[in-house]
Nucleic acid binder design. Structure first.
Lengths: 205, 205, 205, 205
DNA sequence: CGATAAACGAGACGGTACGTCACGTCTTGCC
DNA sequence: GGCAAGACGTGACGTACCGTCTCGTTTATCG
């Protein structure tokens, strides 16, 4: 086997078979899963491999996580710094641009793109993972954007005859589109144009 | 979408083990794959199962399709009516709305949604499927929309200081967003608002 | 040889998928292998078939037996009565004749011949089987004969200027020769002459 | 594929698909089979591989050889120099010793041992190979030895109250025994002792 | 403080699918 | 007419996970 992680493996002296503190066991497992996930992708995150790498029993994994995807999601969020702060300078266009550019940079330059797309992909066949992704990842981020948009509307910067959710789908959805169905590349310039079009419209009227 | 489930198809007399016409074999296989795909989803589309259902040999499948996903994609497109015609009434906003509503209807009312999302999901870990999806599905549809948008720009209905691809991502990407990360529902009203925002902008300027 | 074919053994209620006692599983597998071996020969002893017949998982077989041959060997020796007792009447010539006649009878009249020759044949391309055959079959039998020969030499019945192993090869090797390369038949008279020639020599000097 | 022979592969210019002279085709096939047999053993001699290496069609092989073993046997005898001459110096003991030592040397020092044992092994499950081996290999050699033994008996060097075949089985059978069931090594000294024991007897009488 | 129950590791079990290989049969296209 | 090319169904191989289950051990908890 060539897949061997570096996190959580230097167990100094194994204590035999008996019971260990739950927290310690959990941490070792999540460490191992994260190691596999970031080094080899979702394809390598297997209950078998995680258990072997963590020095745990597969039984324990089945007890705590309903699916491999759920474990992978937890591992991902445990090791990724999620700067959820949304800037609020009073200029919604500038703030959206800043935020979207940060998202694009995270996806393209920091290697998170492939992990996230693999997670979203796996979620299409894994209800537990879908739920975890929504609760931990997509919902909170959408809500954060929504709050900023609501403040902008209150300042009179946005029309008030449509659901603000749409802006979120139009901006981030467009980016996910380019990640998940990569016919066109995801770039910073793309993000800028997205924001401009979303606020000013593509039409000439 | 029309699945003429010629499943099982009680082949009258099997001709033994020798060679059969390639076209006949391929058709049986794609039929079987489509049947499994539409009735039980991607999870059921397995080389083993498809071969058993088609009365074919697994070896044959491995010879022609690089992965299960590639076979599933071919099966999907062989049995789904793809109205690729893009209306051109001279009013780009109306045409986009018509097209997007058709897409939403296909995804939500005709059951194609779950299949497409599963295909896109599987593509995240299957390069062959990703390539097939792009060549057969996403690229052609994007090109069709682009052609309509180009005509509209020629008519002076769209600003000419941005890439038209962005419109496609903004509209269809938003819909895929709601399919793949279903925090909010995909509805016809959502499609309408998308088109309006994309062309007129969400801003109040 | 006694095959108590506990085949199929209509297990009353299968316990699902979990672990079963290893001994129980092993026994079922060896039973199934023996059944196939004695009814259809080595050619029928396949991991696939044995697993299906024993109601076991193929994985289990691969875990315990390095090759089909090794399993077949175990099955053979589990169900064949191996009268390893070597008579010792004080007359080595009579004892060797008795023993060799018993061997010939086992090979020709009780059907063990074809199984043993198939095992030896398969061993030529299966190191695991070769090792099993040696450890379980050929070595012990050779040692038993050697012990009798040593006693005879101590009694002054054999010259002491050659390795006693040679006698074993000359007697049993000749029989195996007629089994494995059957240009001439293996008979009781052949056995008698073998013993006489081995002890008294074919020469006239 | 890493199994590639050196005989018969440098086909200068393949002539397309049409008919070729039978002799040319046969020769190429036997060459290819021999190449595979001597370089990688029986395990590598496959209709598939031979056909690919010879640039022939598998159909052709099935037409001419009833089994892979039969082809392997033909290939073996086509490329092995079989010195069938039996010396006749008037001293049967010396002649047998010479002949047996030559056999032992061929088996142990010239690498023929593993090929022959694999052929004999495969013959246990391949009637066609068994027949070929007997007709081309074992029968002629036995007859040659028998002729020499008959001459010796005529000279009064052998008792005439037993079948001379027995001597052949006692000598060569003992050697095959050590090749096929290798609990003890096959050496030149073993051959010498065999001959002496066969003629003078192991007894002290 | 010592007995007990919970949780753990280890790992085998029945399954399913994978991707490969060889077999023997059959069709098609060249020569 | 006969050979190459090569696909087909069959079936076995060996591997990887899955989810279940048994066992023996250790630890935390409670009587």
């Amino acid at each position: 086997m060539s897949i061997n992680g570096s996190l959580g493996e230097n167990q100094p002296q194994r204590r035999g078979r008996g019971r260990r503190p739950a927290a310690e066991v959990r941490r070792g497992i999540v460490d191992a899963a994260a190691s596999l996930l970031f080094e080899h992708g979702m394809i390598a995150v297997t209950f078998d491999r995680v258990a072997a790498l963590a020095g745990s029993s597969r039984t324990t994994l089945y007890k705590w996580w309903p699916s491999v995807g759920a474990l992978a999601a937890e591992a991902y969020f445990a090791y990724v710094e999620h700067s959820l702060e949304f800037p609020d300078t009073g200029d919604i266009e500038a703030d959206l641009r800043t935020q979207l550019r940060a998202f694009v940079r995270l996806m393209t330059e920091e290697g998170a793109g492939s992990v996230i797309t693999e997670l979203i992909g796996a979620a299409q066949n894994d209800p537990a993972l879908r739920k975890a992704l929504s609760a931990t990842y997509s919902r909170p981020r959408r809500d954060l954007a929504l709050a900023a948009l609501r403040r902008a509307r209150a300042r009179g910067q946005l029309r008030d005859d449509f659901s603000l959710d749409i802006i979120v789908d139009q901006l981030w959805g467009a980016c996910y589109h380019r990640l998940l169905i990569p016919d066109e590349p995801l770039t910073l310039g793309f993000a800028d144009e997205l924001v401009r079009n979303a606020l000013r419209g593509a039409g000439t009227s």
